[in-house]
Amino acid sequence: MTALVAALKPGARFAPLLWVIIALAIAAVAVAIGGRIIAQQIVSGLMLGGIYVAVAVAFTLTIGVLNFLNFTIPTLFMLTGMVAWGLTAFGLPFGLTGRWNWFPALVAGIAVTVLASLIVERFTFRYFKAKHGDATEHAIPLVSSIGFLLVFEHLVLIVLGSETQRFPTPLRADINIAGVVIAIPQLASLALSLGVVFLLSYILKTTKTGRALRAIAESPDTATILGVDVNRIVPIVFLLTGLLCGLAGALFAINYSDVNAFMGEHVGTKAIAAMVLGGLGSIWGAIAGGLIVGLTEVLAIHFFGGEAVQIVVWSLLLFVIILRPQGLFGASKIGKGKL
């Protein structure tokens, strides 16, 4: 109870957690009123939110440390699923009929994604040198990342086509709690996604590399003076971005079975929304934001239909950016989302 009171104070450390608790409480009320159908919606919302969380953390990490809105993130997400599907479709790595075929395929997909992310780093930050600082200078890596978005998306279209494909998912097991069906892979995915993000947050706090990342987020110049090798640390941000997007893409492929060359756009947009809700640069905010966006999306579509959701969600986000640029929760952050 004391912890709850402490969390209620503005700027408190556990504020995002509190929001999650409030959201769950509202969900419980909704279930009490709406019954099994609503409960089912909430479960799917949280599962979807788990995917958003991983992508939102990728966005928020890049903005927090490098002040860079990385537009390749949605494509990286898509790349994992499509590469994995492509491999299984061509019978790789273990032939067409292997029961565990999907697993190495997804691992290979993630590896390709990480590689792609590192290529992006090489061509956006490594050679980037602005001659004079000015107001539009921070857009340079953003423009490069849009170039990469085109390259990756159209390479996938050329090699693997534009049709929606079915990703073979061998694991189909559901548990049934009071009439609410929960797919075990989905539950595992949510746990895995959150687990990885918690681990990342722990790494940022405790390890030497994590401290270096946070130093760069504060000020690249000061970090350099303090002996942080910025050129060695920056690729780590992209490595983590690739891993997070790869993980999210793999989990999406397992759970929703459908993959196509455009699947990143929807998830990317929602992840940006989640990041804004949580505050740019805040990992805990991105977790809370991701779950809330997932829940809101599923429930709003259930009650109001798709178009209304877009208006409501984006108006809300516009207000949040303008009135509470630190995000809804005011949690501690890596970096300040500078400028």
Partner: peptide
């Protein structure tokens, strides 16, 4: 009132609202 990346996102959100209204 916003700056840099925040302004980029704010204008992006505004465009989403407009296209949402047109759709609806």
């Amino acid at each position: 009132r916003t700056r840099g990346v925040y302004m980029v996102l704010a204008t992006y959100a505004f465009a989403q609202v407009v296209s949402g209204i047109a759709l609806y």
